[in-house]
Amino acid sequence: MNTATGFIKALESGTKHIVLKRFTFRYPQEKLKFVGDGYQFDPKKGVGIAGTRGRHILFHDKCTGCQLCAIACEGIAEAITMVKVDEQWKQNKKSIMPQIDYGKCVFCGLCVDACPFYALYMTNDYELSSFTKSHLIYTPAQLAVKPKYDGEVEIKIGSRGAYHGR
């Protein structure tokens, strides 16, 4: 290929993008749609269920305070500490539940794999930024809240290139 055709072809493939659709999306107004409600784990089968690994959700009625999640996290991020809660549950004699420091958590989800009682899952909520470090520490009560997440856009492939659409 000689020099002139090389330049012309390069210019052509660049200018073609004037008519192509924009690939990016406007983030705070539009959000990505994820599969499912977040990463979950089925301890009976020993296999996870696909989903985004965002912040955790803790089901207080199932947590037994067995500390398996904290043990799993021990060598990874050391983000989970077991704290005392003011709740009385039949299955949780010691009244301890995990408290997660999102300043340390790496969102690997191995704590979810470790939980044998379906008590700890992950959710789609990934917007965890805060103004102070101490606000990143989520207490068991905060972890129990199911987050609201409504992502709508996903990648679509059309005749004018790929774009993020509803």
Binding site: F34, V35, A50, G51, T52
Partner: peptide, 25 residues
């Protein structure tokens, strides 16, 4: 991200296979 739940730090391949099955669709 659909497959493993994380965008870059997947932690998906572990000794014994993979963490989860492929999602629907």
């Amino acid at each position: 991200e659909r497959l493993s739940g994380a965008r870059v730090t997947n932690a998906f391949n572990i000794p014994g296979g993979v963490r989860n099955d492929i999602p629907y669709n």
